[in-house]
C-alpha cells in the first residue's frame, strides 16, 4: 500500500513533466511567410559591437505586442506572429544575420512586451530591441534610445459605432476613456486640455473589451492600433477621425549604444529604399484599409556616445512620473 502511494505521487509529478515535454508548437520564432525579401550576404561587424555580439550569439530578442492586429499579433489559429512590427523586426534580423526573412528561423525571437514594461525590459536586458508601436519622445529618451522613426502614426479616438456624442477631442472631457498603461495618451490629452476619466489597462484589446462591455466610452491611442481593433470588432467600433497627436514610432534599444542605433537607422534606410518596407506595410496594416504612408526619415539625433555610457548609467535619470 505504502509503495503505491509513493508511486502515485511520483506519477503526478512525472506526468506533469512529461506533458510539458510534448509541447513544441510555442516557440515565438520566425517561420513561414512568403518569400518577398531579398537575400543579404552575412554582414561583417567590428568586434565588440552589439551587432557582432548578436551575430555570434545567433539570437536577436525583440519585445513586441502579441495582441494588436496589424502591428503585432500572435494568431491563436496557428500560433504565428504577424504584423508590421513583426515584419520590421524580421528585416532588422536579416540585417544582422544575413540571408532572407525566411532563412532566419529561430535567430529572431519575439517576446511579448506590453506598453507599461517596454523601458523596463530594454534596461533589464531581457530583450535586445523593442518594436512595439513605441512612440519616440523626450521623456522616454532619458531611459532608452530610439532608432527610427520607422513610421509616423497619429492618435485617434475609437468609439462604439452608435456613439454620436464624441465627435471632437474636447468631447472627451469628463468621459470614461481607456488607454494603455505607460502610453503617451495621458500626456497627449493633458496637452489638449482634456480632462477625461482615464482607465489604464496593460494591453489595448483589454480597452476594446471594456469599450464593448460599456465600461468606458472611448479608447484613445495610435491609429495603427485602433484600425486593428475596429477591424476585429465586426463593425462594432468606429474611428472618430481626429488627430489627437503625431506619434513617430521607433525601435527602442539600450541607452548609449550609438553604434547599434546607427546600424539600425542604416538598416531602416536600406529597407525603405529597397521597397521591403512598403511591402511589409501593405501586407499588414495596409490590409486594414490604411493608405500606405510615405516612409519617414530616421532621426539620427546626437547620442550620449558609447564612451560616456558608463558615466550615464551611474547618474540617476530624472523621475518622469509626473510628466506622464
Amino acid at each position: 500500500m505504502r509503495r503505491h502511494r509513493w508511486l502515485a505521487v511520483a506519477f503526478v509529478v512525472l506526468s506533469m513533466t512529461a506533458a510539458a515535454c510534448g509541447d513544441s508548437d510555442d516557440d515565438s520564432t520566425v517561420g513561414g511567410g512568403q518569400s518577398t525579401a531579398t537575400t543579404v550576404s552575412k554582414p561583417a561587424f567590428a568586434a565588440g559591437t552589439t551587432m557582432a555580439n548578436l551575430q555570434a550569439k545567433g539570437k536577436l530578442v525583440i519585445g513586441t505586442k502579441f495582441n494588436q492586429l496589424g502591428s503585432g499579433l500572435k494568431n491563436p489559429t496557428n500560433g504565428q506572429l504577424e504584423g508590421f512590427d513583426i515584419e520590421i523586426g524580421k528585416l532588422i534580423g536579416v540585417g544582422i544575420f544575413g540571408g532572407t526573412v525566411d532563412s532566419l528561423g529561430s535567430k529572431v525571437e519575439f517576446k511579448e512586451a506590453v506598453s507599461a514594461v517596454r523601458e523596463a525590459v530594454i534596461q533589464s536586458g531581457d530583450v535586445d530591441l523593442v518594436i512595439a508601436t513605441y512612440t519616440i519622445n523626450t521623456a522616454r529618451k532619458t531611459q532608452v534610445d530610439f532608432a527610427g522613426p520607422y513610421i509616423v502614426d497619429g492618435q485617434d479616438i475609437m468609439v462604439k459605432t452608435d456613439n454620436t456624442t464624441i465627435k471632437t477631442i474636447a468631447d472627451l472631457n469628463g468621459k470614461k476613456v481607456c488607454t494603455g498603461e505607460g502610453s503617451t495618451t495621458p500626456a497627449n490629452l493633458t496637452a489638449k486640455q482634456v480632462n477625461a476619466d482615464l482607465t489604464l489597462f496593460k494591453t489595448y484589446p483589454e480597452c476594446a473589451e471594456a469599450l464593448r462591455q460599456g465600461r468606458v466610452e472611448a479608447v484613445v491611442t495610435d491609429r495603427g492600433i485602433l484600425v486593428g481593433l475596429v477591424d476585429a470588432s465586426s463593425r462594432g467600433f468606429k474611428l472618430v477621425g481626429v488627430n489627437v497627436s503625431e506619434e513617430p514610432l521607433g525601435i527602442g534599444l539600450k541607452k548609449g549604444d550609438d553604434a547599434f542605433r546607427a546600424f539600425l537607422n542604416d538598416r531602416l534606410d536600406a529597407i525603405i529604399a529597397s521597397g521591403e518596407w512598403k511591402a511589409a506595410y501593405e501586407k499588414t496594416l495596409g490590409k486594414l484599409g490604411l493608405p500606405t504612408p510615405t516612409a519617414p526619415k530616421p532621426d539620427r539625433y546626437a547620442g550620449t556616445g558609447t564612451a560616456t555610457t558608463l558615466a550615464a548609467t551611474t547618474t540617476v535619470p530624472p523621475s518622469t512620473t509626473t510628466t506622464r
Binding site: A116, Q143, G182, L200, S319
Partner: peptide, 20 residues
Amino acid sequence: ISVTELSGTAERLINDTAQP
C-alpha cells in the same frame, strides 16, 4: 484588473524610473 495597490505601484514606478 487595473487596481494599483502596493505591488502595482512598485511595478509602475519601476517602469517610470528604471530603478528596480
